[in-house]
Amino acid sequence: MRFTGQVFRAHNPRWSFTPLSGEGAALHGGRFNPVGTPALYTSLRMETAWLEAQQGFPFKPQPLTICAYDVDSEPVLDLTAPSSLDDLGISPAALVCPWEDLADQGKTPPSWKLAKTLMANGTNGIIVPSFAPGATENDRNLVFWNWSDNPLSRVTVIDDERRLPTTAASWP
């Protein structure tokens, strides 16, 4: 499918000068990207971006920079409907797997295998449920493996007033 619309992302303000980078995800890995693979994790609602950034940590919420993005990208697969998963032969367990625990044990999480297969097939991104603590069925994410400011994979940050810093020099 083609996804056209807005998505949101909550950043540590320290990295707000690079809102389109997937390097943090590449460095640490994520549910849908192995270490070394850049990914841009976004949410379909601003509230979901907040949940994702806080991840239910037991400490006080820390400052965040929330950015909105204009998106026009295809192909994007919607993996939130059981029928979509069935059509693709994907188990819901692959999405919800304890990816961090598996990776820490030296095992390849099923969600990484899924991501590698979809990337190899030319999929630019996937819509998935949010697994953040407190998430409801309305909380969904759009994870990109391929994005740019070019057609077919266009993801651009909305910053018409140039409020975001442009370099790391903004920070001590």
Results as ranks from 00 to 15, higher is better:
F131T: 04
Y69Q: 07
G106Y: 08
T48W: 10
N121A: 08
M46S: 12
V76G: 06
S73A: 15
A53R: 04
P129F: 11
S84G: 13
E100L: 15
F57L: 03
L85E: 08
V35R: 09
T80F: 09
F57I: 08
T42C: 13
Y41M: 11
L40V: 03
S91R: 08
D78N: 10
I66S: 00
V128H: 00
S111I: 14
D72R: 06
A81C: 03
P133V: 01
L44R: 02
S73T: 15
Q62R: 12
T65Q: 07
K107P: 03
N124G: 06
K116D: 14
T48A: 01
V76A: 05
L77M: 04
A81P: 05
W112V: 01
V35Q: 05
P98E: 11
S91C: 14
S84Y: 07
P38G: 10
S43L: 05
G36A: 07
F131V: 02
F57Q: 02
A39P: 09
A132L: 10
D87W: 00
D101Q: 09
M119F: 06
P61Q: 12
D104F: 01
G56W: 06
D87M: 15
G30Q: 11
L95A: 08
K116C: 05
E100K: 12
G134H: 07
I127H: 06
A81N: 14
G122M: 11
M119T: 02
D101L: 13
D101S: 04
P98Q: 11
F131N: 02
P133Y: 10
F32V: 08
L40S: 04
D86M: 13
F131E: 00
G89A: 09
P129K: 03
T48Q: 01
V96E: 14
D86R: 14
P58L: 10
P63G: 05
W50R: 04
T117I: 05
Q62I: 10
P75W: 15
G30I: 00
G106F: 04
S83W: 12
A135N: 02
E47D: 15
D101M: 15
D101R: 12
A68R: 11
K60R: 13
K113F: 00
W50H: 11
F32C: 03
P63K: 09
L85S: 03
P129G: 07
T80I: 14
A132H: 03
P61H: 04
G30P: 01
C67W: 15
A49E: 01
A93S: 14
V128K: 09
K107M: 15
D72A: 15
